[in-house]
Amino acid sequence: MNPVATPFFFYLLSTLAILGGVMVIVRRNAVHSAIALIVTLLSVAGLYLMLYAPFVAGVQIIVYAGGIMVLFLFVIMLVNIDRSMKERAFNKQWWIAIAAAVALGALFVSVFVKSKGLFPERGLPLAEESNTQQIGLYLYGNYMFAFEIASLLLLVAIIGAVVMAKKRI
C-alpha cells in the first residue's frame, strides 16, 4: 500500500515540530512552553510513523507526552510561577549563546551541503515481521546488556528522585 500524500504530511509535521520548538524557548510562561513541547513531541511521533517506526512512535507518545510532560506540568505547578513571570526570561550572556548556536547551525548546514549523495535516497525494503517483534528481538538479544543497564539507570533515577524531593528521609 502506498503512503498517502507523504510530502504534505512531512512538511506539516516538521513545521509543527519546529514551531513548537520555537515556542518552547520564547514563551515567558512555563506552562505555555510545556504545551508547545507537547506539540513538538506529538509531531515528532508522527514523523516516526512516516519513517515506519510505529513502536518508537508509540513509546514516544506514552513515555514522553503521557509521562514526562505530565511530570513537567506537575512541577511547574508546584514551584511558584508568578514571580518568574515578572523577571527577565533570558540571562545576560544570551547574545553569545545565540552566536554559538548560529555557528552550530552553520556547521550542520555545511555538513549537509558537503554530504550530498552520501546518504542513500531510498530506505531499506520493509521486513516481513512486524516492527515491534524485530525491536523485541534486538532488545532482548543483541542489546541485552544495554537493556539491563537501562533498567538499573531507571532504578537509580527513582531512588535519586525520591531522595532529592523528600523533605526528611
Binding site: 518552547v24 533570558f90 549563546a97 545565540i98
Partner: peptide
C-alpha cells in the same frame, strides 16, 4: 533545527 533550538534554549533561558 530542533537541536539548534534546544541549544539556544539551554544557553539563554533562566
Amino acid at each position: 533545527a530542533l537541536f539548534v533550538l534546544g541549544v539556544i534554549g539551554v544557553l539563554t533561558r533562566r
